[in-house]
Simulated assay, not measured.
Amino acid sequence: MKQNDSFQELDNELNENREHAEMDNENTAAQADTDASSTEEGNVEVLDASHLKSEVQRLQTLADDYQQRSLRTQADFDNFRKRTQKEKEDFAKYASSKLITELLPIIDNFERAISASGDIADNDSFAKGVGMIFRQLEGVLKAEGLEPMEAVGQPFNPEFHQAIMQVESDEHEEGIVVEEVQKGYMLKDRVLRPAMVKVSM
């Protein structure tokens, strides 16, 4: 009877140990599942953060590019506006240049007539009348910005002078305008017609 009781106790103990082992296995498996789930969630979080960081960098680069394009466009527009404004001002400033250029030969003829009238006897009234007309025309053109050049005695400058001849001169060193054949004119700060001159050699 005692032996049966012992067997029964051993059997009970084995059953208990088996139950405990099964519970431990179940707990271990559950913990493993939990750890695996946590690891996956962590990986997902890391992937999401990396993706967001990459997307932020891409958008920042795109925004910088748009800003640079905007600045370049603004600069181009400002340059265009300034250039257009200057062209408009230049056009207004020199709008009368074509008319004045056509009038220059008339001024030349007036000057020749006044000079020739001095050789004609009893022609004072004619000379005075022509001189008065010439001064009136000269005043109108001067009001538009026309100014004659001072060429004689100046160093030859191809921007202002057109040399038609070189002459020997004891009074001037080489490269000096010694005679003005046709007067040159400036319209404001621009050469309207260069002076025809003779230059010392």
Score class of each variant (00 low, 15 high):
residue 43 N to D: 13
residue 144 E to H: 07
residue 108 D to H: 00
residue 21 A to I: 13
residue 102 E to M: 08
residue 32 A to K: 06
residue 50 S to R: 05
residue 83 R to S: 15
residue 47 L to Q: 15
residue 158 P to C: 11
residue 103 L to A: 13
residue 136 Q to V: 00
residue 167 V to E: 00
residue 102 E to N: 14
residue 26 E to M: 12
residue 90 D to F: 01
residue 25 N to F: 09
residue 53 K to R: 11
residue 10 L to A: 14
residue 4 N to P: 03
residue 46 V to D: 06
residue 132 M to D: 12
residue 35 D to M: 07
residue 44 V to P: 02
residue 72 R to M: 10
residue 80 F to V: 11
residue 25 N to Y: 07
residue 78 D to I: 14
residue 49 A to W: 02
residue 52 L to P: 03
residue 54 S to V: 09
residue 35 D to I: 08
residue 63 A to Y: 05
residue 78 D to R: 09
residue 154 Q to Y: 04
residue 79 N to T: 10
residue 15 N to I: 10
residue 190 R to V: 13
residue 45 E to V: 11
residue 193 R to C: 14
residue 145 G to K: 01
residue 29 A to C: 08
residue 84 T to I: 14
residue 129 G to P: 04
residue 170 D to V: 11
residue 26 E to S: 14
residue 147 E to A: 10
residue 189 D to S: 09
residue 83 R to E: 14
residue 132 M to C: 11
residue 146 L to F: 08
residue 56 V to H: 03
residue 121 A to Q: 12
residue 19 E to H: 15
residue 139 G to N: 09
residue 134 F to M: 15
residue 141 L to M: 04
residue 188 K to I: 13
residue 84 T to R: 08
residue 138 E to S: 15
residue 65 D to K: 09
residue 168 E to M: 07
residue 23 M to F: 14
residue 61 T to P: 01
residue 157 N to S: 02
residue 144 E to Y: 02
residue 160 F to T: 15
residue 132 M to Q: 13
residue 89 E to W: 04
residue 52 L to V: 15
residue 137 L to Q: 02
residue 153 G to T: 02
residue 181 V to M: 05
residue 20 H to I: 13
residue 78 D to K: 08
residue 182 Q to V: 09
residue 109 N to R: 15
residue 117 S to R: 02
residue 165 M to Y: 04
residue 136 Q to W: 05
residue 187 L to R: 02
residue 19 E to F: 15
residue 109 N to P: 11
residue 165 M to Q: 13
residue 53 K to D: 15
residue 113 A to M: 10
residue 78 D to N: 12
residue 114 I to W: 03
residue 154 Q to C: 10
residue 39 T to G: 08
residue 197 V to W: 00
residue 55 E to F: 05
residue 174 E to Y: 07
residue 15 N to S: 14
residue 94 Y to L: 09
residue 131 G to E: 04
residue 162 Q to N: 10
residue 189 D to C: 05
residue 32 A to F: 07
residue 65 D to C: 08
